[in-house]
Write a protein that binds this DNA or RNA. Sequence first.
RNA 1: GCCGCUUUAGCUCAGUUGGUAGAGCAAAGGACUGAAAAUCCUUGUGUCCUCGGUUCAAUUCCGAGAGGCGGCA
Length: 322
Amino acid sequence: MKSTSTPQICAKPFESVVFLFGPTGVGKTELLLDLDPKKFSVVNADSIQVYRHLDIGSAKASSETLKAIPHYLVDIFDPWQQFSVGDFVAHADQACKEIHEEGKVPVLSGGTAFYFKHFLFALSEAPPSDEGVRLSVAKEIAEKGDAWAHSRLAQVDPISAKRIHPSDMYRISRALEIYEGSGRPLSSYAVPSKPRLGMKPLILGLNRDGDELKERIRQRVAQMFDEGLVEEIRHLIEMGANASWPALQGIGYKEFFQARISGEASRSMIAEQIERNSRAYAKRQMTFFKSFADVIWMDPTNKQPILSLINWYQGASSPSGR
RNA sequence: GCCGCUUUAGCUCAGUUGGUAGAGCAAAGGACUGAAAAUCCUUGUGUCCUCGGUUCAAUUCCGAGAGGCGGCA
């Protein structure tokens, strides 16, 4: 058992942490440079920026920004490794602990809503994904079909089967994997719904007008190509990258590998796909973020109020301030 | 200039043996139990290019015109 991923074992509960999230391209990274590195450190909450060698397409903070203020959870995995929300919570806990020990406040910044959710509420008690069981489940589904998978789930875990749509093979697979691996239905594991560790985060959501965000995404994709996205892809291919590498499901990467399979594609076609996928992703992110409670929504165009709020929170929660 | 093909949802296109039409993508909204930049759900009235003709009825058939594509000159 990995004790690091179970919050109860954490030696020192941490109450103060800033959440900074928003859809892709909204301007989170631009804000980080304005934080005082003596008071804050950044904890990356982005599922792709944890990977080494994926810099341009993942819109990772520049090396200058990384130098200017400490960043945790950036470049901690190789692109062929599987990173998961469980890894995120474990690493983020460790990072927050270190940051607090320095007398600073961690700023969790990123776009992966799923990570924020489970960092705040903890993970379900269900066991982590097991590669072996997952593969055998996948093999059986491939043989017997998607319809079989859902009816099988209806037998072993009717509660989950009712909740999960018959087409949602991603979740059906996970639910079957839990049953095969642990002998217990997924729905029998408790889902935490209260913030853990007495955490009292400052939850900041950044949002922009739809057309403005679209335009920023368009510009950012063009900028990625200018900065050498194609060379970054070439470098990954030289490393042996293929579409099965977990990191390469990221937008800005998968489009190239799909194009390789389907034939030639021009730069403008791939750029268009990246823009489209980014827009759809931003929309999904917003849907998820809007479901969060106690979010203070702010306009990233106006940096001062945001920074004031973060600084106020830091002052109020630092030992000397109590 | 002549001949052929073509014009239907924001885009690419189906289709109606004549009874006013539907897929994919896009767009909008939503879900989210350890892969989440993933995965999935819901939502489709549009002068069916224009004008005229035939018909109870035309987006569908006929004629003319306009735009596009291709071939021959």
